[in-house]
C-alpha cells in the first residue's frame, strides 16, 4: 500500500509515475468506501491517494495532478460536482478525468458538471475498476 491513510494527502512519488502506475485520487468522507476503493483499485494496479473533503481534494489535484479523480458528490467543503467544475475549468487540471461515484442518483448533474463518467453507489468492485480502466484507455487515445 503506497497511499497515505487517515485521509492525509499522499504525494505520489515520481517512482510511481515512472513505473507507469496511474494515480487515482479518491474523494470520499466514508472511511469504509475509501478503504474498499483503495483495496480494489490497488489490486488492479493503480496508486491511490485520498482526500476526505472537496477543498483539500482540489489543492491536492493541483499539486499531484492525478490521472483520475473519483469523487462522491456529498463531501464537505466543496461538493463533488463543484470540485468537478473547478477541475475542468482550470487549465492545470482540465485533463484529469473525473468519475463521479455517488449515493445520489445524479448522472445528469454529473454530466452537466463536466464529469467523464458517473457510477452509482454502493461500490461494485468490477464496475469501478472497469470504469477507471476505460477512462485511462480514453486518456491514452486522446490527442495531447
Amino acid at each position: 500500500m503506497t497511499s497515505a491513510r487517515g485521509c492525509e494527502p499522499y504525494d505520489a512519488t515520481m517512482a510511481d509515475r515512472t513505473a507507469g502506475k496511474a494515480i487515482i485520487l479518491v474523494v470520499d468522507r466514508d472511511p469504509h468506501v475509501r478503504e474498499l476503493e483503495a483495496h480494489f483499485l490497488e489490486k488492479a494496479g493503480f496508486t491511490v491517494v485520498f482526500a476526505q473533503d472537496g477543498i483539500y481534494a482540489l489543492e491536492h489535484a493541483r499539486r499531484v495532478v492525478p490521472d483520475i479523480v473519483v469523487t462522491e458528490i456529498l463531501v464537505p467543503g466543496l461538493d463533488g460536482l463543484a470540485l468537478c467544475r473547478q477541475l475542468k475549468g482550470d487549465p492545470r487540471t482540465r485533463a484529469i478525468s473525473v468519475l463521479v461515484f455517488s449515493i445520489l442518483s445524479a448522472a445528469h448533474r454529473a454530466n452537466e458538471a463536466g464529469a467523464d463518467a458517473y457510477l452509482r453507489k454502493p461500490l461494485a468492485d468490477r464496475a469501478l475498476v472497469d470504469t477507471v480502466q476505460r477512462l485511462l484507455a480514453e486518456r491514452k487515445g486522446a490527442p495531447t
Binding site: 469504509h32 474498499l36 468492485d125
Partner: peptide, 9 residues
C-alpha cells in the same frame, strides 16, 4: 452496517 452499506452486497 456502514461497511455493508458501502459495498454492493
Amino acid at each position: 452496517a456502514g461497511l455493508l452499506a458501502a459495498y454492493n452486497v
